[in-house]
Design a protein around this nucleic acid. Structure first.
Lengths: 96, 96
DNA sequence: CTATCTTTGCCAAATAATGTCAAGACAAAA
DNA sequence: TTTTGTCTTGACATTATTTGGCAAAGATAG
């Protein structure tokens, strides 16, 4: 599940219009619309606010959010993408 | 092995001063120095030039380069980092 | 049709990335 | 010790990318 799909799902479940979410994030409705469609990336603080609004664990949303960012980054380089991900995981183990 | 380590190793093996590499990349020596120390990220075109200079496969360097970028991105979020990497790998399989 | 919600395109503001310059650190050679 | 060449660092400039607002246009329900 993608971050963008998840926040839309949560918003619908809670029966909230984009306008309400946008207000909480202190941004324009149009901007939030773009976040939900993946045309803009949310900031970390915005993810925090979203997890509060929807009563879900911050780490859950944060994981999806980060995964989306990484996917976006590597999908420009499909040839080496998956190997690079493996290496990055390895790097994490070594460094922290 | 990190990208930064690799290009330094290759440069030393070929007995080239940073000045020579910087000239080929059309940047200041100081900038190349930072790239080698990881304080600046190389652009993709620069990676291409480096692989030519050192006579190594472009994809080899590109993989290291991308892995470094990903590592850098996720290491800010160590709590969710490795799970996000798994998800990103999964996303790649699904999307492409 | 009207009202509300959502989406899109274009431009402005803010932020981050990239590069330069000048000066300093360091080592080897003269 | 002075010189020479290489590498490194920090402050600043430039450029590129990201983020946001505004206005107008779809879409959908009442």
């Amino acid at each position: 599940m993608l971050f963008t799909e998840k926040i839309k799902e949560l918003r619908i479940q809670n029966q909230m219009p984009q306008r309400q979410i946008a207000a909480a994030l202190d941004i324009d409705t149009a901007t939030y619309c773009k976040i939900e469609k993946g045309e803009r990336k949310a900031k970390k603080e915005q993810v925090a606010i979203l997890s509060e609004m929807f009563h879900v664990e911050m780490t859950d949303l944060l994981t999806l959010w980060l995964a989306d960012k990484v996917t976006d980054m590597v999908s420009d380089e499909h040839v080496v993408a998956s190997e690079a991900l493996s290496m990055a995981a390895e790097n994490l183990r070594r460094i922290g």
